[in-house]
């Protein structure tokens, strides 16, 4: 994805994932998933992230709950990015995303649409919204690997 996305395109990507999230739904067979409850004292965000892993590969990832525009879109994009990836690859993607959010050097080649959140640090109060789902997924994978 080119870094020269216009603000209009970035907004459109966020709004598409907010209005029509692909990976936000009720769990059908929750017992087959690892899950984590994430909430925020600063926003209304109150979500559960679900992950299914087979032989070290993330075979499914989705979330459900109440979430703002930024957390919904960022978590939805995250789910799309990690499905089909190995856990190591998923952790690498999460790491690069967080580096981007915190204005460190990062590898944009693995972030695809997630780069629309590259300027989040300018609105520091929203960093938690942009990372809540990512923190949850990271914790599940780390926990699972212990």
């Amino acid at each position: 994805m080119p870094i020269s996305l216009s603000p209009q395109m970035m907004r459109q990507i966020i709004m598409d994932h907010y209005d029509n999230p692909q990976h936000k739904h009720e769990p059908n067979d929750a017992n087959k998933y690892e899950s984590i409850h994430m909430d925020s004292a600063n926003c209304i965000d109150d979500i559960i992230v679900y992950v299914k892993e087979d032989n070290g590969v993330v075979t499914d990832c989705f979330f459900n709950g109440v979430a703002c525009t930024i957390s919904t879109a960022s978590t939805d994009i995250m789910c799309g990015l990690v499905i089909g990836k190995t856990c190591e690859e998923a952790l690498y993607i999460i790491d690069q995303y967080k580096k981007m959010i915190h204005e460190e050097e990062y590898d944009d080649s693995v972030l695809d649409e997630a780069i629309v959140f590259m300027n989040t640090s300018k609105q520091a109060a929203r960093i938690r919204c942009a990372t809540i789902g990512w923190d949850g997924l990271e914790e599940i994978i780390h926990h699972h690997h212990k």
């Binding site: 603000p7 970035m10 907004r11 525009t69 300027n119 609105q123 929203r126």
Partner: peptide, 9 residues
């Protein structure tokens, strides 16, 4: 209409 502009300015 442009309330997400804060992220891109």
């Amino acid at each position: 209409g442009d309330f997400l502009d804060a992220y891109f300015a």
